[in-house]
Structure formats: structure tokens, C-alpha cells
Amino acid sequence: MEFPEELKYTEEHEWVMVEEDLAVVGITDFAQDALGDVVFVELPEVGTVVEAGKAFGVVESVKAVSDIYAPVSGTIEEINDDLVDAPEIINTSPYEDGWMIKIRMADAADVDDLMDVEAYQALIAEES
């Protein structure tokens, strides 16, 4: 399983890539593997205000459903429309083509609360 070093992580298994005041968000390799084949993704509309720690969408496999939580607070700037017709991208490319949303951050300091790759890997080791 792969966990890029340049990313930040959450306890709910989302990853975040920070590009100035934009946060790109997806779910980790661990999360996609635990879910199995992803069959459906529900994402918010552009312009929606999201709050750190609150659910912004849903990801489903055949027999499981999971909320996806916003790692940071802000406004949805862009969503990945490709996932609607091809949710399997989340399985095949969780960190690149499988990105879900871009959040224009309300407070860039939110990022400081996220885990780095070592902390996240320790969390996974504990969970599995």
C-alpha cells in the first residue's frame, strides 16, 4: 500500500494535498482497499460551504457505505465530475485521478491539525 509523503492525512482516511489556499481531498489507498470496488460517489455542489470534521459526501461499494469527512473548513471550489460515471477510478488511482473535491480553505491553519505520513501509517498499523 502506498502513502505519498507530500500529503496530509485524517483519522477518517482522507488525504489532503495543499496548493496555496486550496486543499485537494480524496480517500487513501487503505480506505479504498477496505471498501472494495467502489460503485458510487456522492459529492457536494460547487459553492457548498463545508466544515472540518463534518461529512461532505458518501462513497459506496456493493455492500458498504461510508461518509467522507471534510479535513478542513472552506468552500467547494471544484469537484471531480469524472467520478460520477467512473467511480472505479477511486480504486485504481486514489491519489491522482481519484481526487474528489477542492476546498478553498477558510483558514489555512486547519492543515496543522492533520497527520503527516508517519503518524497516518502508525494509525493504520494500529487499526489493522
Binding site: F40, E60, S61, V62, K63, A64, V65
Partner: peptide, 9 residues
Amino acid sequence: LSTREQHIR
């Protein structure tokens, strides 16, 4: 599409 249903959700 059983993720809509009670035994999963």
C-alpha cells in the same frame, strides 16, 4: 443498490 437499505445503512 442495497446500500440504500436497512441491513447496510
